[in-house]
Design a binder for these strands. Structure first.
Lengths: 204, 204, 204, 204
DNA sequence: TATGAATGAGCGTTCATTCAT
DNA sequence: GATGAATGAACGCTCATTCAT
């Protein structure tokens, strides 16, 4: 009895996955605005009503999507944040983790980041990511590896550059382009843009 | 006769403004997905059909919104791009122009950038902005004021940092926070993040 | 006082004509489904509401259209019917009158007969025309000039052939084509289709 | 499984029929201009949206109507046209086929031919029918069974007479009246209207 | 559980008509 | 009379959700 219950839950979970994939391909084909329950159902090969055995409704399904995309992104990043590495090393590792995630989930990202979903995802993702980044910049200042500047703002900047990585993916960039972007980003992050500080414009 | 015609046009223009504001408050309350013609109309205190005296349809209304927000942003930026300034100077000026725009249109930005509209706006805005920034980075490399790195990527990074400025506004940041962010951004852009290059992590 | 009243009525009548013409050109441009009060008004150079000073509403306007097209058609035909001519002569005269009307009102006919209005017009026109034609066929039988066959049916046939004349106009046929059609119609009406009766098929 | 699928299709087809009939009665009551999806739905006893399970949209529904009425009319006629019969025989057969169709589909015809739909149907039907008739008249001239006159015009005349048959039906004529009309038509077609050609009026 | 027809509120849009100016 | 903005019911159509089978 217990076993059969467990099995049932397992089957349900797999079904949610299947539906999730179907929904992905629907968004792929018809855009996020074209994601209707009917289409999802018929893509899975299920009747419309059956979806409601696995999801409470459309918004539940969307929530599942979101989790699916976002959690595997945060997991390695939060792990990196917890290590004993120096701040610059953490930043670089995070950059690489993001890059790996971006490459791996290219499809999903193209789906959401390019779509209208982007706003929702970003809304949830940004504060969480900023918190992590700010902490790292604080650490960097504390340990003397990063220039002492408002760490929250530094986190924002880094976040902005990170976001562009996903835009690049959403645009359909090739892997080597992504690679190069990350390299440039690391380099510029560390060395700045200008040839030499003395070239800096005086503030007006 | 002429005068009355002019007056009429003026009234129409004001009405568009009124509707625009109503629509803003609708988005505020119900999100962009909840922006329906009916709601807008009833917010203005008009019948649904009356909206169509001022806008050709929903997409026209949206277009108006967009123009309202985006064009005054690009105008000074494109002007700066056309000047004879050095690349770093241009970047700084652009940053300041963006900051001014962000402060001035705080409400609008909060509306759109925070909302789902963001995706649409960004979709149109980003390529245009990237083109400008890339050109500036190219110029910087040519004139020897900026480190020679793939200018498209540098443009992207800068764009990412710029985007965060608007996110900051959308979050409801105070003016002095914005100010500080811009200052930090300029500083970090020029000098980089690290205390010294030798602190840079070795790539793994 | 009286005079000014008469003058006013006259002005009103002229206005109705003007509106009528405007409406015609609207139908011309946008099809009958595209005949809206707004368009009519703006074509006349009048405000929408002003139309209602001259017509009680859209249906009144349409009624006016109809009368305008149909009455000048029936007038000569009814006159011909009242003469002392023989039935075949009357038929021929009617045919010519119809032809003249068709050529003269080519525009209007193309407007209505080709449009969806056709049904309405035909609905009103047919019984009236059939009554006239039936009477003529009765007369022809009485006077021995037409083959004695159910005059109502003969009227119908003649009416059917007549209708085609207007279809021809609606198709945009040239005058000489119309001419030829009438000639053929007269000829066939009198002589029949077959070379000789003995070629007639035996009823199955 | 297969069976149930077949059954489903059958049920769908029946539903289309039911909707079709409901739509007919709506047209009956409110005229073709009053044929709205809402009214059709509520006549069937369905929600508005449910119609769209059976038809892609209003135009699809209308198309169904049209096909329903027109195709069974053309089928026998085109078959007759393909036979080796003489032209007069073909004409007579066509006449009978039309008569049969008219009697069989009395209801439909009353619906559409009497309504505003007529224009639309006729618009599609006429050229197709004229092509067939013209070919037959050409054949008749070639084989010497029909008087050599512009075959296109002769086709038009015949078409006009044929149309009247349907008007007769639309008027609610009894079968024997229709019968008589066809008989008269055949007779007159072959023999002409006049007692003798010498009674023909001289053209003025 | 699976089904898929039925639902019905909601959408954007049109347009004949009214009425304060 | 003339105006034209305002009206509001009606339209065709969509789609998340329900429920009898």
């Amino acid at each position: 009895m217990r076993l059969s219950k467990a099995r049932k839950e397992c089957v349900t979970a797999m079904m949610r996955d299947t539906i999730f994939e179907a929904a992905s391909s629907v968004v792929d084909k018809h855009g996020t605005a074209g994601l209707t329950m009917d289409r999802v159902a018929s893509t899975v090969g299920l009747a419309t009503g059956s979806l409601y055995n696995y999801f409470d409704g459309k918004s539940d399904l969307l929530q599942f999507f979101y989790t699916r995309l976002v959690e595997p992104f945060f997991q390695p990043i939060e792990e990196i944040a917890r290590t004993e590495l120096s701040a610059p090393q953490k930043l670089e590792r995070i950059l690489h983790a993001a890059w790996e995630h971006a490459v791996k989930y290219k499809g999903l990202i193209r789906l959401f980041v390019a779509g209208d979903q982007r706003a929702a995802i970003r809304r949830d993702t940004r504060p969480r990511l900023l918190r992590i980044l700010t902490a790292i910049f604080k650490q960097g200042i504390r340990e003397g590896t990063l220039v002492p500047r408002n760490p929250a703002h530094m986190g924002r900047m880094f976040h902005g550059c990170l976001s562009e990585l996903f835009d690049l993916v959403a645009e359909g960039a090739r892997n080597d382009e992504l690679n190069e972007y990350v390299a440039v980003l690391i380099d510029a992050t560390i060395k700045g843009f200008s040839i030499r500080p003395e070239n800096a414009p005086e503030s007006n």
